[in-house]
Write a protein that binds this DNA or RNA. Structure first.
Lengths: 122, 122
DNA sequence: TGAACATATGAACATTTGTTCAAACGATTA
DNA sequence: TAATCGTTTGAACAAATGTTCATATGTTCA
């Protein structure tokens, strides 16, 4: 164990140096990956997904969204904030009612791709 | 408060009955939504995203993936299990080395849509 | 057969996440 | 102006998640 002290607990070594180098070279910047993960994380919750789906059918106010989902108005509002921050929904105020709607054309396509996948794997 | 006891603590009422009914009618089944959320959840972690991206460049063994990501072999293995369960990657064994690769064409498209979005909103 | 290696897995732990509850904020209306 | 309504927000809390560590599994090679 003498001269191997510094690597004594490495469990795993590179097997194909060429592949590792080539792939490392083509990898996206880690920050971009983080950003992308944050984006997809938004789709990873059924409450938010339901909101997005509902809004793809019609513009709606917060109370109505809550009614459709069967979720508390507060929970919906919290999730709308996240969707807003990710620029997936926009809103307009009319008196004390706030109407939300989609703010991005990619939503529908991402939705469809996801559905295609889960329909295929079962 | 007499006859309203059952709804006394409802903070929010339906505002547009017609919209709520129409959207409720067109909503997807909740189970489908859950399933879809589970699927997108997989994309919502940067380690898994990096693995998927790396595999879009080349088939790779676990050790090499770990090397490219700078993550422990164990962490990679745990995440590969999730990707496997979601049928996003497949693998083949060659001796004691296991090679992973993509198992779905939607991955690349979903990736691209996500990137398009985050590139637009900044 | 036993040592070495690539990978998988379970338990433990810290972190993140989503909901609820209570309260605050704006806008309307009586 | 006060009460009401639709919405937002912060704190608290339980549940879910990702990593690490230790160990197990399965394969090769000496």
């Amino acid at each position: 164990m003498s001269k191997h002290d510094d690597i004594e607990n490495i469990k795993c070594n590179v097997i194909h140096r060429d592949v590792v180098d080539s792939v490392s070279d083509k990898m996206m910047e880690p920050e971009k990956m983080e950003e992308l993960a944050e984006f997809f994380k938004v789709f990873g919750d059924s409450t938010r997904l339901k909101i997005l789906y509902a809004l793809s059918i019609s513009e709606m106010c917060v109370c109505d969204i809550a009614a459709v989902l069967g979720t508390s108005q507060s929970a919906v509002s919290h999730q709308l904030k996240i969707l807003r921050q990710m620029r997936l929904v926009k809103y307009r105020r009319e008196g004390r009612v706030i109407y939300y709607s989609h703010d991005d054309e990619h939503i529908t396509e991402i939705f469809r791709k996801g559905l295609e996948h889960i329909n295929e794997i079962k």
